[in-house]
């Protein structure tokens, strides 16, 4: 912990970065993401096992966008998000100073993108057993049951878009759901609108989701929507050998093809 603070403090003091993105103590024993702009404030910077939010999200916010340099305390999920954002031309390496934190909570020092790629490869990834179990449970259902399951699961959705707001990959200035000419997705949070919204979001994240689970955690009505993009990222890995968040240069399963892609369903 002291090591993270030391690095952050130095970076700010030397003006290499103007913002350090990390966590501070919140109310009632909670933690909250915070922007640190002064070296003396770094005393408040914390990192503990409660700091699970994917703060890569904030790299696209104005405070970071306007700074020349940004440091970020980065757990494996955050590192993968950063790499994917870089692959999608959303951030540049010169600006970002990654202070790596391993899945065991140890400081891994400052990582450049190359080191971050190596770091990402060594950190545990893949689906959690409980997520895998849920996917398998759904897959074992009949077609009608699956449909009913999802319609039911989405029915409490109030279209608050917290899933979108918490997702580092949902960075579009104007989301498809806000397009009204044509109105691709119904605005109202009725069953149809909910199914189409979550389906569209899953398709947009196919091959890009880094499996941080932030969407599920932020959902106020506990929809297991992360399962959709988890299932797809697992599928994309199997099918196209493509995995998001491991590479800082361009990769996207859906912006590529091979002549031999499996097409047994095409007549």
């Amino acid at each position: 912990m002291e090591e993270i603070k030391k690095i952050a403090r130095e970076l700010l003091a030397e003006n290499k970065v103007q913002v350090v993105l990390g966590f501070e103590k919140g109310t009632a024993n909670k933690v909250r993401p915070a922007f640190f702009t002064k070296a003396e404030d770094i005393d408040k910077l914390i990192y503990n096992e409660a700091c699970i939010h994917n703060i890569a999200l904030y790299l696209k916010k104005d405070t970071c966008q306007h700074a020349k340099g940004v440091a970020i305390t980065a757990t494996p999920n955050v590192v993968r998000s950063i790499l994917q954002l870089s692959a999608e031309n959303q951030i540049t390496e010169e600006k970002i100073h990654i202070i790596g934190i391993t899945h065991e909570g140890k400081c891994a020092g400052i990582l450049d993108f190359k080191a971050a790629e190596e770091f990402s490869k060594t950190q545990p990834k893949g689906l959690k057993p409980e997520d895998k179990a849920l996917i398998e449970k759904i897959q074992a259902m009949s077609l009608e049951e699956r449909f009913d399951y999802w319609v039911e699961a989405f029915s409490p959705c109030i279209k608050c878009y917290a899933c979108r707001a918490s997702c580092p990959m949902c960075y579009c200035g104007k989301c498809n759901v806000e397009t009204n000419n044509p109105q691709w997705i119904p605005v109202a949070s009725h069953k149809y609108g909910n199914v189409e919204w979550h389906m569209m979001r899953a398709m947009h994240l196919a091959g890009r989701c880094i499996n941080c689970g932030e969407c599920n955690r932020s959902c106020p009505v506990d929809i297991p929507l992360n399962i959709l993009s988890y299932m797809l990222s697992d599928f994309v890995l199997d099918e196209f050998d493509s995995e998001a968040g491991l590479n800082s240069v361009f990769t996207s399963a859906l912006s590529a093809y091979t002549v031999v892609d499996k097409e047994n369903f095409i007549k």
Binding site: M141, R146, F235, Y257
Partner: peptide
């Protein structure tokens, strides 16, 4: 080819969501 890839993924998602 790009369309095919998209259909492969889309079909998988539809299957998973119970869309016929």
């Amino acid at each position: 080819f790009y369309a095919r890839r998209r259909w492969i993924v889309f079909k998988k998602l539809c299957d998973f969501m119970g869309i016929d």
